[in-house]
């Protein structure tokens, strides 16, 4: 994907080839939007009580952030600086509406289950942050890569939290009973609100521990 950059890209081709992979790695792992930058926490907590809804939400975010990054980047030379925020919000909201209508048409149950949280992708700081920090300065294809990478980084964390909350909260995996029988009593607290906060706290702490001492700037 990285080598198929169109000629209109201002930077040299070789550099962009390397940049694509670097952007991907940075978004998905070393600068993970959720675990490192603490963006988009709201939806990460709200939809992760089941693995299935976590995955749908992750897919939604990949779609929205990739598409909105593409269009913000395409329009970046034509957007007056003063009104760029509202332009970004309008672009993001358009794609969120598309995804919401898609869910309502084909996966009504899922749409009901996610409730207002699909609409809340509009105010998800990840999408807005990437549009503002990356897509405004970079060519379209690279911006799409960045959007996908950040969406992916978010989706992976969501899947991890969703997996453990569903497993410990209901003893199930994708709706099939894994932990059951007499020896395991499902811990209801994990699917309720406190479990969400707890799970996210632990996941971020593990990320911090894995990254080692360079996580210093996150301290307050």
């Amino acid at each position: 994907m990285a080598n198929s950059q169109p000629p209109l890209v201002p930077c040299s081709k070789g550099l962009c080839g390397g940049k694509g992979l670097l952007t991907l790695k940075e978004g998905a792992w070393s600068n993970n939007p959720l675990a490192i930058q603490m963006l988009g926490i709201c939806s990460a907590l709200a939809v992760t009580n089941r693995l299935e809804s976590s995955l749908v939400m992750g897919a939604a975010l990949i779609f929205v952030s990739a598409c909105s990054n593409l269009f913000v980047s395409l329009l970046r030379k034509h957007t007056p600086h003063r009104i760029r925020m509202i332009a970004e919000v309008a672009i993001i909201a358009t794609f969120v509406i598309l995804f919401d209508q898609f869910l309502k048409a084909f996966y009504w149950d899922m749409s009901k289950q996610l409730g207002p949280y699909v609409g809340l992708i509009i105010t998800n700081c990840i999408v807005m942050g990437r549009a503002e920090a990356f897509a405004l300065q970079n060519p379209p294809l690279l911006s799409v890569v960045d959007g996908v990478a950040n969406g992916l980084g978010y989706a992976v964390i969501l899947a991890i939290i969703g997996f453990f909350r569903e497993l410990f909260g209901t003893g199930q995996f994708f709706g099939c009973v894994v932990l059951g029988g007499e020896w395991y009593t499902p811990n209801q607290l994990m699917i309720l609100a406190p479990g969400a906060f707890f799970a996210l706290g632990i996941v971020i702490a593990i990320f911090n521990a894995l990254r080692g001492p360079q996580g210093e700037e996150n301290k307050k």
Partner: peptide, 18 residues
């Protein structure tokens, strides 16, 4: 160490929520 900052804030929020 790894809990400083946001993680401990999450754990504390968990207790408040409870």
């Amino acid at each position: 160490e790894p809990f400083r900052g946001v993680p401990i804030a999450m754990i504390v929020t968990c207790v408040i929520a409870m």
